[in-house]
């Protein structure tokens, strides 16, 4: 595949905040329809990388290209039609319903008034069906469990109809059935809809089962692009996460 086919490219990217460098010389080439797990110990730079790749934080150096065009050359509006992000931010809207939340995913596609057309309502219903939340449509957010809320947030990202979806620890505070359900759902999105998923995770078991590629912040703070197999065989996982990583 040629350079043009890459959905996401970084060239000599340096990330960090307030002048503090977290990681340098990041050169990523990501092809579409892949599931990428972003791993590393706490504070290694996972969130900062995600914030930088989604344009929320500025790169200290180097460039990021999405579909061959530098990220700064996109307006915030254009970017919202290219990439969706599921954050762990708390949503402070007591009266909001699941349908309204998912509907916000359609905002980049609506006009000045934000009115949802028939097509938008269809996309909302499809997204809700995909995450198994159809019957929760009229429920208020404060009545949902963590798993249901996470599924609704993912439905919002699906409704946004973007090629790229970023998720910040999408399964971190979920129980085992919900965790499996969410990760499985993300995998399906890459396979059935050709979406590219980048998610941060601490769960090696799930990563082994579902991730095509791992971006790992290693023990010296460099970002390595590896497969699960390579991580085990090269001893990278052991050096990064310590000897007991397999039992974790």
């Amino acid at each position: 595949m040629t350079e043009q086919n890459n959905i996401l490219t970084t060239n000599d990217l340096q990330i960090g905040y307030q002048g503090k460098v977290l990681c340098s010389s990041i050169n990523l080439r990501l092809q579409p329809a892949k599931m990428v797990a972003l791993m590393g110990v706490n504070g290694s730079g996972k969130s900062t990388l995600m914030r930088t790749l989604t344009g929320l934080a500025k790169a200290l150096k180097g460039s990021i290209e999405i579909e061959g065009k530098e990220i700064q050359k996109y307006s915030r509006e254009d970017l919202s039609r290219l990439l969706a992000v599921v954050l762990t931010d708390h949503i402070n809207a007591p009266e909001m319903t699941v349908k309204e939340l998912v509907g916000y995913g359609r905002y980049p596609h609506t006009g000045w008034f934000g009115r949802l057309r028939l097509e938008d309502l269809q996309r909302i219903d499809e997204a809700l069906a995909l995450v198994g939340m159809t019957e929760f449509k009229t429920r208020h957010l404060y009545t949902l469990s963590d798993g249901e809320l996470q599924r609704s947030l993912i439905a919002r990202a699906i409704a946004q109809e973007t090629k790229l979806i970023f998720l910040d620890e999408p399964a971190s505070h979920l129980d085992i059935p919900n965790k499996a359900m969410i990760i499985n759902l993300l995998k399906q999105l890459t396979e059935d809809q050709g979406k590219t998923i980048i998610y941060s995770s601490h769960d090696l078991g799930m990563v082994k089962k579902y991730a095509d590629i791992i971006w790992l912040f290693d023990e010296s703070g460099n970002l390595q692009e590896i497969t699960f197999q390579q991580g085990v065989e090269s001893g990278l996982f052991e050096r990064t996460f310590g000897e007991g990583y397999q039992s974790a």
Binding site: T54, G55, L56, S75, R76, E77, L79, S80, R81, L83, A84, V85, L87, D89, H90, I91, N92, A93, M96, L101, Y104, G105, Y107, P108, Q160
Partner: peptide, 12 residues
């Protein structure tokens, strides 16, 4: 309503 970060990511 979704927070500053989410608002930016949805094009605001």
């Amino acid at each position: 309503l979704l927070g500053d970060n989410n608002a930016q990511l949805l094009g605001v």
